[in-house]
């Protein structure tokens, strides 16, 4: 009997790993091996034209001690990440609105979601125009309302550029957030609200006591997506500002790309990649420590 159970268990384990294998293989080929490659490269002097030479910690030293742009892009990435809650809050409001039993809510949902499937390049080009200092729509409206004399050069000022890019990025992803939150909302049993109403809870109390807690896994999933976004959102910045002006919108990912392919320092870019990755692993660990149960919720979403 014990043998039979063990045999069954072995078969099950085989099945599990067989099922995981294709996905693991794809990730190994396209994520993990490249990451290891970067790891090796970061300790070498290397270019496409020359054999590699051992460099020790040269690149890491350069980065941490001398490279202001690295630090700036590091902070920009952190700011970008910290802005995720704004988008999520906005999405939450929309989700609550389209969750009400009103006519045409499917139309509203579709419209809000519509920005997500647009090619990022197109999003970049159109927002570039919206923000344009002389002819952009936003400045046109501001001027028509008499709120500013000369146009505000949103993307050309180191003060406004990063927030401006963040707004465009939120515009693009808010529909995606909304859908996630909306689905979370729809899963909350109506009976809970009814019971709370009978107990005389106000709308705000019901929101705080029922909606928010039960929505936590969805909100957390949004956060994860927001954080991924701040690490991988490349196209939008590339098109809108190319990291400028004066690196005001440089994120780690755009900086790595610039260093590798525009400045031809693949070895240095590899070191940046490793630090970028370490930064994320640290964040994940921190989130895990701080939120305990929440990370478990992400695992199961």
């Amino acid at each position: 009997m014990a043998f039979a159970i063990r045999k069954k268990r072995t078969r099950e384990l085989l099945l599990i790993w067989f099922f995981l294998a294709p996905s693991l293989l794809i990730f190994a080929l396209y994520r993990i091996i490249p990451l290891l490659w970067n790891g090796v490269l970061s300790f070498e002097f290397w270019s496409p034209y020359k054999p590699a030479e051992f460099a020790g910690l040269y690149h890491y030293e350069e980065m941490i001690l001398y490279d202001d742009v690295f630090w700036q892009s590091f902070w920009n990435t952190a700011v970008f990440m910290a802005s995720a809650p704004i988008g999520i809050l906005f999405a939450l409001v929309i989700a609550l609105l389209v969750d009400t039993p009103i006519r045409g809510r499917n139309v509203y949902r579709t419209i809000v979601f519509m920005s997500y499937p647009v090619m990022t390049v197109a999003v970049g080009i159109i927002w570039q125009w919206l923000y344009n200092e002389d002819v952009g729509l936003i400045n046109y409206i501001l001027r028509s309302l008499g709120m500013s004399g000369r146009g505000i050069p949103f993307l050309n000022s180191s003060t406004y550029a990063l927030p401006a890019v963040i707004v465009a990025s939120i515009w693009q992803v808010v529909g995606f957030y909304m859908i996630i939150l909306l689905t979370g909302l729809q899963n909350i049993p109506q009976s809970l609200y009814e019971a709370a109403s009978i107990d005389g809870a106000s709308a705000w109390q019901r929101f705080k006591r029922i909606t928010l807690p039960l929505l936590r896994p969805s909100i957390f999933l949004c956060f994860v997506i927001g954080i991924i976004n701040s690490f991988t959102n490349f196209d939008l910045i590339y098109v809108m500002t190319d990291g400028g002006p004066s690196h005001a919108t440089e994120l780690l990912v755009t900086y790595i790309y610039r260093v590798a392919f525009k400045l031809g320092q693949f070895d240095y870019a590899a070191a940046l990649t490793i630090v970028n990755f370490a930064f994320f692993v640290f964040l994940a660990w921190l989130a895990n420590r701080l939120s305990g149960g929440e990370a478990g919720a992400v695992e199961s979403t």
Partner: peptide, 19 residues
Amino acid sequence: DAQVKEAFYPELQAAMMGE
């Protein structure tokens, strides 16, 4: 050349934008 450009231009840009 590319790295020199990268070292020079952002500084010039900052000066031109009055920063």
